[in-house]
Design a protein around this nucleic acid. Structure first.
Lengths: 158, 158
DNA sequence: ACGGATGCTTGAATTCGTCAAGTGTCGGAG
DNA sequence: CTCCGACACTTGACGAATTCAAGCATCCGT
């Protein structure tokens, strides 16, 4: 109910309503087309599990990362990170290493195969769904311009 | 490489590129802010699991649905649907029923509690993330107008 | 009315996720 | 220098979610 005083009443749509509408458009689109399928589909196509994908995306090629940092990035338990890295190591996508300054920490780094797989995952994830390709060029341009304002967070992409 | 012949070369951005840019904007936003957290956060807040939520959203209040149709809607195995409905039934969110014309099929229908929970889930899922509320009103209006063209699929919302 | 197809359930196996202990290492207080 | 607590990771147990292979009851075309 109570909005900050002084907000124009002449404007029919409050900022919250606007944001809600935008969110519904994005979320509804994602829900119906992409969200549920993307990770699972890609993982099946590339022969890895969704968990592998999330982990791979958090690793920069050639840049070893401590297990703990990986767990933080994945918002998961340390033991879960251990399990995940075990699976990735079995498939030769990553290798474990140590840092000389602190023998407690173990690092994870992509193997060449891992880097290749990661690149394939990213490329595949970036492929737009058919529903977007079916839209008119004008509408797409309008969307691209408008969506440029969306925050992207710390992208594991690129 | 090869695009359909006759596409204007004067236009720097092909339609595929446009769609890819739009998709990246949406997907990147989702990845960094919403996708990984929304379902899990909501499920924790409401005391249900993500699986419960997906199933609840596919059920219209007062409208029994065969298990098979539910499994199709969830893009999952029939046995998985059985398992999910078991859990939902344990929590009195749904009830099983039969159809007189075919005694093989078992239907699932929301209980009053289930309908209430579903409504709460939908309302919570429709709350926009902070990142959207932080944007300018003009940008939001621009986005809303542009995104109106997005297909929504068969929405389990509303 | 028989045989194959259909709809759901059951059971084993895999992935993913959390929590509770266990092991080895670091670093500061005495 | 030596403990002792903190830290980094691993291990094990368990639950959630998912898939496959069998199984059971029912339906339907011949």
């Amino acid at each position: 109910m109570a909005y900050p005083s002084g907000v124009a009443k002449t404007r029919p749509a409050s900022k919250a309503t606007l944001a809600a509408d935008v969110w519904r458009a994005i979320f509804g689109f994602f829900w119906s087309t992409g969200a549920r399928n993307s990770l699972m589909l890609v993982s099946q196509e590339l022969g890895v599990t969704p968990g592998h994908i999330k982990a791979l995306l958090e690793l920069q090629p050639g840049q070893p990362r401590p297990m703990g940092a990986l767990a933080d990035a994945l918002h998961c338990d340390a033991s879960n990170a251990t399990w995940l890295v075990d699976r990735l190591e079995e498939r030769a996508l990553v290798e474990r290493g140590t840092v000389p300054t602190d023998r407690r920490v173990k690092t994870v780094v992509l193997t060449p195969l891992g880097a290749k797989t990661r690149a394939a995952v990213i490329e595949r994830l970036n492929e737009p769904p058919e529903e977007l390709l079916a839209l008119d060029r004008e509408d797409l341009e309008e969307m691209r311009a408008a969506l440029a304002k969306l925050p992207q967070g710390p992208p594991p992409f690129a």
